[in-house]
Design a protein around this nucleic acid. Structure first.
Ligand SMILES: [Mn+2]
Ligand SMILES: [Mn+2]
Ligand SMILES: [Zn+2]
Ligand SMILES: [Zn+2]
Lengths: 152, 152
DNA sequence: CACTAAATGAAAACGATTTTCATTTTCAAA
DNA sequence: TTTGAAAATGAAAATCGTTTTCATTTAGTG
């Protein structure tokens, strides 16, 4: 992905720097839902002279060129998620804070319909479910088998 | 809604105060997607002695007791949306910042299926579409009929 | 090499949110 | 009605993720 990103950015009018290359590479190595701080830490493992602002600015750049999107899981920290070929949604476990990705192709189709009906041109979708994951349900079940306040 | 809220809160162990009543009433009079500042302004029109922290704390309380949810439209300001009987989604116009509500009952059904397949128990849903609304499309068309960079 | 625009790093600024704390108020029990 | 503990309030300050500033360095072009 090295040379590709460089050429890609050049066509968009951005310069390539060692810091930028490191930051881009680190970001895509980290997988999903990366925060600035996490990326900063990772980057500094390879080059401890890179500044926080630079990491932040390049994360914004990654979004600007369409390679990532901001994700908010409700903890006040913006995370950055690589843009996947097909859109995906998220299951947020409110207990263990785990984020699971789900496919949403059918959903997006329906949403696009709804949007178009209103003359609205969709650009991106955010489909998220808050709830309790399998593991946490099991754990909670140990001490809350009564099932009292389970219903919505 | 006056006495109802009072009794409702009492059962939850909260006390009623004039400020609280005013804040709750104002919130539900304001409709959708209310920010702290907007609610603060509205409240102060009736009682200019109410503090910002009180408005903020009560907005959180409204959420805690399940009458509202936080909504983030991407401008860095948390907004609060009354919880509707049936879940609804949003169309966010990135141009004029307008938020339009859409019904998502079918979507939620599908999402619940997906979640259950993974042993995930859904509690709430966030379904949002970013894009350009009908009005803004028309306006943009006036000065950008070339259609150059329209595609994604 | 020389030049210009872009990028960087450290620090400060920003601003929405949250907490602190002294004081006031609610509400249930006496 | 009086009383006291717990909760709520208001002003101010603290917090903290985000963003900007600015002096300096660097990339890319010719
Ligand atoms: Mn994701
Ligand atoms: Mn809404
Ligand atoms: Zn979990
Ligand atoms: Zn619009």
């Amino acid at each position: 992905m090295g040379i590709f990103v460089k050429e890609f950015l050049k066509t968009k009018g951005f310069k390539m720097t060692p810091q930028r290359e490191l930051i881009f590479r680190s970001f895509f190595e980290m997988g999903e839902h990366v925060s600035v701080d996490e990326l900063y830490d990772k980057v500094r493992q390879e080059d401890s002279s890179v500044g926080y602002a630079t990491v932040w600015r390049n994360l914004k750049l990654i979004c600007k060129v369409g390679l990532a999107e901001e994700v908010n899981i409700g903890d006040g920290i913006t995370r950055y998620d690589r843009v996947t070929r097909v859109p995906h949604g998220h299951l947020f476990c409110t207990s263990c804070k785990t984020v699971t990705e789900i496919t949403v192709e059918q959903l997006v189709g329906l949403l696009s319909q709804t949007a178009k009906t209103r003359g609205f041109v969709p650009e991106s979708f955010k489909i998220e479910v808050q709830g309790v994951c399998k593991e946490c349900r099991g754990a909670a079940g140990e001490k809350d088998k009564s099932g009292a306040s389970a219903g919505g």
